[in-house]
Amino acid sequence: MFNARRGDEPPGLDLSVLIATRSRADSLERTLGSMAAMDTDGIRWELVIVDNGSTDRTSELLLEWCSRLPLRSLHVPESGQNRARNTALPGLRGRITVLSDDDVCVASDWLRQWKQGTDRWPDDAIFGGRIAPRFPADCADWIRSDRFPFRAQCFAEFQPTQGEGPYPRTPFGPNFAVRTDLLRAQPFRADLGPAAGTYAMGGETELTLRLKAQGHRVIYLPGPCVEHVLAPENLSLDKLCQRGFNAGRGDEYRRAMRGAWSRPVLWLRSKLLMPAKIGIYVAAQQLASLFALPMDRRFARQYRVHSARGRLHQLRLMLGGGPSRGAPA
């Protein structure tokens, strides 16, 4: 059940901001501080935070901040960002649900831009806002460079060059909004998205593709902007390659859900095609090191190896059967 910290909000609100968090109290506190500094005059909103099994001071932090923000909290101990989000959906009171994260800093006009932007497109239901990465001061130049490959997958960067309006691809990450009634009817898949250990990445992408297949379109709104604050420990080569592995798992998962492969084809991909592709990528990675290519190009080859290994891992899980092992439910 929801723990209603404040009971004076009207039953119908403009916006619900939904965040799932797990043991990142310091980062969450920075996010809450940026939200407390927003200009929200005239905007009816709520902040719902799902504590997804934190073992640090997150619960105490939420108690501290409930007097400064229209904050309600929910505790879901079982790991899984999308499972936590789905648990919160029945209690949301905003017409629009803005999905964010515990490692962002929002602009002072963030909610105002969301309110005005979604009001301009009353017949649409899926919206993506701008996400700019904030790198630590000591970040390597080749990582922060615009030439860095896979910026979306590694940094959750989302900065299309087009203006406001229909967007042909899929938004993702910590600045994504859906009309609440539609999100309740079509929730996230609980077996996708961040969880303890490795996981199949792409919960927002899967949801958006599913809704687009039903006739909905995506609207890009450049006005509502967040900075995604990148922790130094998440920019190590091991962590960046881990994201490649998780992204590969998610790509293969979505292919299977679309019915792209029959079971014999899945078996063939797992036994022959993906191992062969991994071998090719490993050879390309070794050649890149041998010829001392620039670091960004060497990383691109390393990332592709891990992405292909993630695909192979997901294929084997799906052939093993059962949603708990990674198969589509």
Rank of each mutant, 00 (worst) to 15 (best):
Ser262Lys: 00
Leu63Ser: 09
Glu46Ser: 09
Ala137Val: 06
Leu207Ile: 08
Arg298Gln: 11
Ser23Thr: 03
Gly223His: 02
Ser16Thr: 07
Met35Ser: 09
Tyr199Ser: 01
Arg316Phe: 05
Ser23Met: 05
Thr208Val: 15
Asp238Arg: 11
Arg255Tyr: 14
Leu192Lys: 03
Leu182His: 05
Phe150Leu: 14
Gly259Glu: 04
Asp8Trp: 05
Val106Met: 14
Gly197Ser: 06
Arg189Leu: 14
Gly91Gln: 10
Glu157Gly: 13
Asp124Gln: 15
Gln116Ala: 14
Asp14Ala: 12
Leu47Tyr: 09
Thr31Ile: 05
Asn3Thr: 10
Met35Thr: 05
His306Trp: 12
Leu15Arg: 08
Trp65Cys: 09
Pro168Asp: 00
Arg85Cys: 14
Arg189Asp: 07
Thr40Trp: 06
Asp146Gln: 13
Trp261Lys: 06
Arg179His: 12
Leu290Pro: 04
Arg93Leu: 14
Ile278Cys: 03
Leu211Ser: 01
Gly250Trp: 00
Ile278Pro: 04
Lys239Glu: 13
Ala137His: 00
Arg83Gly: 08
Leu32Glu: 02
Arg130Tyr: 06
Phe176Tyr: 04
Glu64Ile: 02
Arg325Lys: 14
Gly248Trp: 02
Gln314Cys: 13
Ser145Arg: 04
Ile19Lys: 01
Ala185Glu: 14
Arg304Tyr: 01
Cys241Asn: 08
Cys154Ser: 07
Arg44Tyr: 07
Arg298Ser: 00
Glu157Gln: 15
Asp39Lys: 10
Gly250Leu: 11
Pro90Arg: 12
Ser23Trp: 11
